[in-house]
Design a binder for these strands. Sequence first.
DNA 1: GCATTAACCACCG
DNA 2: CGGTGGTTAATGC
Length: 255
Amino acid sequence: MFSLRFIQTYNAIVVTITPSDSALHQRRRSLTQAELDAIPWYCLLAPEERQRAAEDLKIAEASPGDYVCRMGRPVTYWFGVVDGLLKMSSDNAQGQTMTFTGVPPGGWFGEGTALKREAYRYNIQPLRKSMVAGLHVDTFHWLLDHSIAFNRFIMNQLNERLGQFIAAREIDRMTNPDIRVARSLASLFNPVLYPGLGQVLRITQQELAYLVGLSRQRVNEALTLLAEQNVIRVEYGGLRVLDLNALRTQIFTKS
DNA sequence: GCATTAACCACCG
DNA sequence: CGGTGGTTAATGC
């Protein structure tokens, strides 16, 4: 388990290994230059800040069933998705899981928790095998103290996410599944939160169903409708957005 | 009526 | 071969 590994290394806390931990043999490692260059905030930093960030940044593979971070655990890292797809969710007292949003490649999250140095308030789990980068919370704060550009990035990110969550509330109050799928897709293609994603997103219809909270069959029906309207194109193992604005605003009706 | 689950099969990589 | 997509039938609210 990704988060446990980090805790073990940095705080020397002995953690009992649960069965799912053994499935994750991959070592965390430093990032390649190409991976560093793909990080949206990295290129904003001054040379000495870059160096410090690069020295601290680590990357590891996470699989479905693993927890990248877990509700209630103390914050250790600020996380970013290098490849794959994660979901943000929480569990209520009845044990039901509620999924809030997906995090596609290029997305960084947990800054709110990192800022306050408190416990994670959500679970983050991969929907498929994913590569997740982590910046230690101390380095995160060091960057906040030294780089105006980094502060601006974080501010921008928080602001954008606020808009995203308000949109998510709207989505939840929509009863129409076609619009729910459209709006959820639009938020995954947010160019501020997930830059460099392009027009294609690798996501299976099953994964999308988990995120939206519908059955795969109903998601498939909605995607077919959206494709008929030339708003998206359905591709094998993913989809391409043709008209992001329509996804965000349009009302779709069956013909 | 509408969405969900279960099941089936063709196709892709 | 396993995973994914498109479809249908039965079931439930």
